[in-house]
Amino acid sequence: EGGHLASDVSRIEIERLAQNVVKSHLETSQYTSEELKRLAWILYSQEDIRNMQSKSCEAMWHECTVQISNAIQYVVEFAKRVDGFMDLCQNDQIILLKAGCLEVLLIRMIRAFNPLNNTVLFAGKYAGVQMFKSLGCDDLINAIFELGRNLCRLQLSDEEIALFTAAVLLSPDRPWLSESKKVQKLQDKIYLALQHEIQKKSGNEDRLSKIISKLPLMKTICNLHLDKLEFFRLVHPEVATNFPPLYKEVFNS
């Protein structure tokens, strides 16, 4: 299928799209590579961790929704800058963002994930799984850290992260899309661009399938997050009402 499409789509078009997606990614990353390098070994102290662990479940949930909500704004800006996204009808733009933004965030997370000490950048410093204990979502947190370690093993470049996140965002199989063919065409071109990028750099034939093989774990994490949110809303409806409006818009069904 890829070969057939390649004959229809010119190489120049694919290269232009790759440049656009990579530029959009770099312009809308929450942290530059330099900033991340500077922060790399800035860890929470034992006291910080104890304080965070002693927070109530509700307060920790709220803190996480604020961080996620903030990060989503950058994903929306990324989507807006990807060629073709704004040509979709607004209904489809919303569907793609709602369905795909957490997956995009999970991939973006690896830029701020340190596999050497199993920590992730959270609110300005690096934190391990124990930091999130009070959320009461050990399975979800463990799955997110497992994905972080798995993805880090691939040592994705910024170009690969850019193209992979764009491809995930433009998934044509999201329910209720009105122009899924149009989305499919865009995604096909982005995957072609990713394939070219891989060939250019490493020439490793199964690298693309290794990257794509992480999608099921990402889907599991997204479903688990929705389950946890649903449960939290049942137990603490008044706290959930005060979650950031953008978080509620994206994740309330």
Partner: peptide
């Protein structure tokens, strides 16, 4: 539209809240 008013606004807004 009302249900997703922030997303609509972010998508339409050229001066997005992202500080670039």
């Amino acid at each position: 539209k009302e249900k997703h008013k922030i997303l609509h606004r972010l998508l339409q807004d050229s001066s997005s809240p992202v500080d670039l």
